[in-house]
Design a binder for these strands. Structure first.
Lengths: 357, 357
DNA sequence: CTAATTTATTAAATCGATTGAATAGCGGTG
DNA sequence: CACCGCTATTCAATCGATTTAATAAATTAG
């Protein structure tokens, strides 16, 4: 039989206190498992918990936060939620946070500096206890990091290496990724390998390129610089696609020969495939193509794109755990340790690459 | 010169009151633009605002919410954020909410009933003032709606028609979409048109099918039932792809002829393309294919998928405006009007369909 | 046997705002 | 001139918890 309480009155701590016969203090101490609860008799605890349960008591988050000065929330600031790259990271964050008492508050800056700052401010106002920034495509620009640092807020960035700035970072090992990518093509017999690398200003891009070069050096493979191109440093999340298509077209029209292509990421690879199609060619028949990221699209396009997988969900978890550690240890005073967490990429075989005939 | 305040002490309303020489009440009334502020002298307002500004005062959300019993938040419950269908809707919601004082709190149930309910509970505890549910792929099942109704919370569902249940809904006009889709193929000269429709239990699917049938009836077009298939009612967000590939393969292996295919959605279309490729055929050369939704992938695959676009961002906005209306008018007592808002779909031409040779 | 310590509980202050009722001044009215 | 309604501001209660310091009883120590 449901208690026929007056409908609109919420059950408060006082109600529980009255009904259980203990003081509000004791009830609070028991229900919030404060340190003092060590001294509360087991029987008392049980009685209080039972009454709370039976009344359907739910503490008021606002009252609680007001008094205890803790919001039990963390801000998650993502640069562009429509970037498929982000979504799995978010899932990792969410799953990890789920078992804690922290609520993620997600804000999407959709690639806008102003918005980013605005939302950052908003999150501060909502008194988040920590911050996870999911960065992609240019983020570094123009003192954003300074803004972050000044906030004096435990912060972890995932997807971009900013470790010098006394903020934690979690990223994939891009150098290893580049290495694995070209190695795969090499092992399929390809020797004339084109590369569409990312913008030079992007550190990810440089690391991947280093990996490629390292492999080439190790194998004595000659990288023909006439078939190495660089994406422009654009802002639009789809610019990778456009750029990939554009540059591939140029490559095809130049006289230089190549039988395989390392694309900066999956979108670039998709663009390359589009360009091939325009010339009535296709992957992998006329050119093997390998991407990077393993966004969901990569599996759905035809041909499926062979790619270097970033363990995105793991990256989300790792970043979250990093933050939680700090939050736990010092309740706010702490800063995230500066070091960089590198997660290993892996090769995902699909149909856009094949052995050289 | 920055004021050298003791660093950790936050600026409170009292500080502003003291410095400006008015009482806390007046300050509160002015800064929160309460009704009473009508009676506050313009000069006073200005002085208070100025001091607030100069002290860098930011009201404490918790104190404010505690006293005023308003959280200034709305819950956004999405069924699966990795479904690209959702993301643009979210953007619409976010953009619309941005200009208001409401903060969206986003929770992702990733296709799990239990999670959905858990997050629903959590949002109630956080005292959201309203709810936007972004539903896709089966949601109707098993009393979820009842749960929602019982919460006595203004709610709008986008993406699924639940208007009978006294909850607002915003969806695309699926019937019109189906009609437009087949019309497009018909106008390209196709007469033997296959259809992979969605699961029968999904109302979207039925409406689209109705639209297709209506067009056929109007034109006296015969729909050959041997080339009409139905996706199984699976849960997985990618089942559309698998299903599309599977059913297309079956269609190809049956002796029945067809020159075009209406796919339930873009993922299904991608699956169909994959199946064609396996048989060394391709769209649109061997078969024109039209999708539904216009998810971002549709533009990036090769060939680009001709599709029926759902105005997803608009749908998000519409749902949000619907909710805001209710929230404004009665501060909570109100329920969302039951009626259904149908938004028009539109044809997006790309390369997966072509005139019958 | 008293003092100190540990266990168990509570009174009361507090977090930082909002808000309904109260206080005045002031011009107009019958 | 007493009363009313309007403008302008403030007092004090309140929202619902947490937390510090205090109280009291029980146990141990000296």
């Amino acid at each position: 039989m449901a208690a026929p309480k007056s409908k609109s009155t919420r059950v408060t701590l006082i109600d529980v206190a009255r009904k259980s016969g203990f003081s509000p203090s004791t009830v609070s101490i028991v229900l919030s498992e404060a340190p003092l609860s060590r001294y509360v008799a087991a029987k008392t605890k049980e009685r209080i918990r039972k009454t709370a349960q039976s009344l359907g008591y739910r503490p008021d988050v606002f009252a609680r936060s007001l008094r205890s000065r803790r919001s039990h929330t963390v801000g998650v600031l993502v640069f562009d939620i429509s970037d498929p790259f982000c979504v799995l990271i978010l899932r990792g964050i969410e799953k990890t946070l789920q078992s804690t008492s922290y609520l993620p508050i997600l804000m999407d800056a959709h690639h806008d500096r102003k918005q980013f700052e605005g939302y950052l401010e908003l999150l501060m106002e909502r008194r988040v206890e920590g911050l996870i920034v999911v960065a992609n495509w240019l983020f570094d620009e123009g003192g954003l990091l300074e803004a972050l640092k000044n906030k004096h807020m435990p912060t972890v960035v995932v997807g971009r290496d900013v470790s010098e700035k006394h903020i934690g970072s979690v990223i994939v090992d891009n150098e290893a990724g580049g290495y694995i990518a070209i190695k795969h093509l090499y092992e399929l017999g390809h020797r004339r390998i084109a590369v569409i690398r990312g913008p030079r200003m992007l550190s990810d891009s440089n690391r991947r390129w280093s990996g490629i070069q390292r492999f080439a050096a190790e194998q004595g493979l000659q990288l023909d610089e006439r078939v190495v191109r660089e994406l422009p440093g654009a802002i639009d999340p789809f610019s990778g696609f456009e750029g990939g298509a554009q540059l591939t077209e140029e490559l095809l029209q130049s006289r230089s020969k190549f039988t395989a292509l390392v694309a900066f990421d999956d979108l670039t690879a998709l663009g390359a495939i589009r360009a091939l199609a325009r010339e009535d060619r296709s992957a992998p028949r006329d050119c093997s193509i390998i991407g990077f990221d393993d966004v969901p699209l990569a599996a759905l396009s035809t041909p499926g794109i062979t790619t270097i997988r970033q363990p995105m969900e793991q990256m989300g978890s790792a970043a979250t755990n990093r933050l939680l550690e700090v939050l736990r240890e010092s309740s706010g005073s702490g800063q995230v340790s500066t070091d960089l967490e590198l997660l290993p990429p892996s090769l995902v075989l699909r149909d856009s690459t094949s052995r050289l005939a």
